[in-house]
């Protein structure tokens, strides 16, 4: 039992280390991963400016922009990552190793969270410098709590998606592409989800980024309370439940999918 736990911790840290080294060695992210999302979200700040909206809406957008980094990381570096691992021939080696594939996925998540947090913080910092966004720093402890819960449930969802994407071939890339804009909409990356109406916003709450972002906005922008979907406490409770469900589901799913993949030979097929 303990031996097995140590094995999986080592595998997890080993996979996370790939991301740490990548971040250090592949420096493309500095100009592009930080500036690029900032450029993307700037469009919405300028639209709010043209509509003469108050600066708190700029904070809405910047916080949404930093959350986009995580969502993109989930899509491209978690969900479709196993697809890339298959393309490079790593996937069969993950499966013939004694460690659980979940430990590798958690390793990816840990590495991804670290790398993406650097990017997300840079976006917020640049947002403060360029757009002078107002932030209520006293709300930081609450924001950190909301943020951590969001990440746990979001990466749990990412692990689930990884398993599902494992069954797909080239569609994995397209699925990731396809899941970008709908989630931008339903998670309210550029506007409060309350605007979507109660029922749509309730359904959208299944995506951890939606409630996570809403609670982050509540804690860091007190003026945003009227635009909040649910109270901070309820949102935190739901995020806790989502974290447990998604992580549990990802463990169940990965076992099932591995069996299907072994039966159908999907672990070994490369180009499709």
């Amino acid at each position: 039992m303990i031996k097995n736990l140590i094995l999986n911790i080592r595998a997890c840290l080993g996979r996370a280390q790939v991301r740490f080294i990548g971040l250090k060695r592949d420096l493309y992210w500095i100009p592009f991963d930080v500036l690029l999302p900032l450029l993307g979200v700037s469009t919405f700040i300028f639209i709010y400016k043209s509509l003469k909206m108050p600066p708190i809406t700029y904070t809405f957008v910047i916080l949404g922009g930093s959350m986009i980094s995580y969502w993109l990381n989930i899509l491209w570096s978690m969900a479709s990552q196993l697809y890339w691992e298959r393309m490079t021939g790593n996937l069969p080696l993950f499966f013939i190793a004694p460690c659980s594939i979940n430990s590798i996925l958690i390793g990816m998540a840990v590495g991804g969270i670290y790398a993406t947090s650097v990017r997300a913080l840079s976006i917020i910092l640049l947002g403060i410098i360029f757009f002078k966004i107002p932030i209520y720093w006293q709300g930081l402890p609450q924001a950190i709590l909301a943020f951590l819960l969001t990440l746990i449930s979001l990466y749990g969802l990412g692990m689930m998606l990884s398993s599902i994407f494992l069954l797909s071939g080239r569609e994995a890339w397209h699925l990731s592409n396809l899941l970008q804009e709908p989630i931008y909409l339903f998670s309210g990356f550029f506007f409060p989800i309350k605007t979507l109406g109660f029922w749509v916003a309730s359904l959208a709450s299944l995506i951890p980024a939606s409630l996570g972002l809403d609670s982050l906005r509540q804690s860091l922008i007190p003026e945003s309370k009227p635009f909040a979907f649910l109270s901070f406490e309820i949102e935190i409770t739901i995020l806790c439940i989502l974290s447990i469900i998604y992580i549990y589901m990802s463990f169940i799913l990965v076992k099932k999918i591995e069996k299907i993949a072994r039966r159908e030979g999907r672990l070994i097929t490369r180009w499709q």
Binding site: K3, L7, N8, A11, R15
Partner: peptide
């Protein structure tokens, strides 16, 4: 990754 880093990564899959 370089050769050593790659091999270290794979060694960790075996704990």
């Amino acid at each position: 990754l370089n050769i050593k880093e790659n091999l270290f990564f794979f060694s960790q899959l075996y704990g």
